[in-house]
Design a protein around this nucleic acid. Sequence first.
DNA 1: GTTGATGATGTTAGCGCTAACATCATCTTT
DNA 2: AAAGATGATGTTAGCGCTAACATCATCAAC
Lengths: 337, 337
Amino acid sequence: MAERNQRRSVSLADVAREAGVSAQTVSRVVHGSSAVQPRTAERVREAMERLGYRPSFAARSLRAGRYRAVGLAMFSGITGTANMYRLDGIARAATEAGHVLTLVELGSEKRPTLSGAAEAMGALPVDGLIFNLTRRVADFEAYRAPAGLPTVIVTPFAHPTCPTVGNDERGCSRTVVGRLLALGHETVFHVAGASGSVAADERLEGWREALGEEGVDVPEAIRGDWTGASGYEAGSRLAREPGCTAVYVSNDAMALGVVEALRDAGRRVPEDVSVVGVDDSLSQVLPHDAIASVRFDNRAVGRRAFERVVAGAFDGEPEHVLVPGTLIERASIAPPS
Amino acid sequence: MAERNQRRSVSLADVAREAGVSAQTVSRVVHGSSAVQPRTAERVREAMERLGYRPSFAARSLRAGRYRAVGLAMFSGITGTANMYRLDGIARAATEAGHVLTLVELGSEKRPTLSGAAEAMGALPVDGLIFNLTRRVADFEAYRAPAGLPTVIVTPFAHPTCPTVGNDERGCSRTVVGRLLALGHETVFHVAGASGSVAADERLEGWREALGEEGVDVPEAIRGDWTGASGYEAGSRLAREPGCTAVYVSNDAMALGVVEALRDAGRRVPEDVSVVGVDDSLSQVLPHDAIASVRFDNRAVGRRAFERVVAGAFDGEPEHVLVPGTLIERASIAPPS
DNA sequence: GTTGATGATGTTAGCGCTAACATCATCTTT
DNA sequence: AAAGATGATGTTAGCGCTAACATCATCAAC
């Protein structure tokens, strides 16, 4: 049964010897070339089976000069809804295109940089790189992709030389603010996500911008940390704000906390206060009572990033793609009463 | 500025020519060998910089005969809390060990098999394989790992020849049932997860087993589909069961639905009915009112799987590791009143 | 029977890298 | 000054694969 741990793996030459043919003929059989006599092919196939032949990726790619693989660097962990869907989008797109994904997690390093990641990943079996950023990195602007290794950065910011793909975080804020003001609210309050998160900061900035453009009073923002508990705390403070009839919360967990705090304080949602979250992460979780939320298509972001990388070398002005979110309207928003 | 799209990539020989030394010397510099004169090393480094040299993974691994990489096949998508943490655990362990992860998503195939996955991944740059299973596959028992390619399967089931690592789903049920019976409940009702999910089925089976062992009446189980809405529906039915004082729900979203339905039906939690979920996925989401839940350490599962693979060839009886869950007690459970 | 097309198979070379050995200059020791 | 040690560098070969070409038998066409 159990094979002895064979040191060296089985090569084409081994199979060729076993089948009494040349290595080239075995190669032809492996690739289904028609120019092999059926009897010979059968013999070769038997030898492959008997020896347990597996083609060598290293030798093939050395010859081919490419890997049909893209490298993905996750800069701050894989966990988190957005990262998960991005990864899923990239993985699916890659599999469909016959590519594989080489994943490196950089979360454990204290201050990862793009150039550090590129150096580490440049020696991996990859034809291109995708950097998934959820926080700021020190050398973002200064980074230049290694020659011959196309790099796409997943971020809402534009980069001087690399194409980027990201969620339109500012547009998200603009959409929400616009909708709430259109409903007749005087202004919109904001509960921001954890400081340091690009998404949180961009949504916050976008909210300021949007209110400013509309010439509306900009209330003080409240910083949360993405958790429901921090949302509850924010909600308790907002319940004491007399002018607060609409709240834009940077994610759904906090939005849930805000709603609960408002209700506990005797303010009705949506009659007294409208609440909107982001991510649409709770629609499968909450039995009803879902909260209006902006849904980002992070799978699409991942897919675009992959397609952009395999499209290859970049010339001229780098493309900067922002995928818009969609506001899912639910019973947590209404005109002010 | 922008380099012309150089067709072939820069090799050691190119650098050697540029620097006026031999390829071996360049190799020495790349590897930081001391046996190179500082002046020469500097010249070589400049040439590398100037030409944009990156080492060829293919050539290195062809020479080394291994990749320092493991392949991970996700059999049914990577989304979902458990999968995400497993992936994270594997990725971290790999990075720490200086390995990379080659990820293949098999979710899109209608009926993926282990042998199919192994064949596809055998030609990839991998020294071992991890199969992450969340559903049953047709050839589970029959599968035999390719010679020279150690394979670990992530599943709660034992395999005749491959080591496996998984959550102790049955033990989870046993823990919950044991705790609830110890509190004095007559029996424990169960809301199961989506049919076809190994976790759902094993928890269901474990619940039956545990009740049976204790000589307690086994009520009819209710099938949910993992969503809060299905939990609510189940809860509504359970609220009409007079003997129902304790419910074991296969995940937290459904547990939340159950709690809400019970309360809507006028039954108090935990005074009238105790509820326990699984996954501990809502502790960051719900502002308070958290529901008791069994937390599985899926990161640890991923880590064990990785370590097992790189440990290499397997002999004799395959190891079968079940990582136990921990019951996090919260205010949703109490003795029956 | 000669020519040439066709088909099946073999041979050669080189992708980029590095372990192992070879070479050569320089320095020490006696 | 001869012998040997040391250090810096070069040369060779081969990891497994396959494109391109070479070889050889077979068979049809004239």
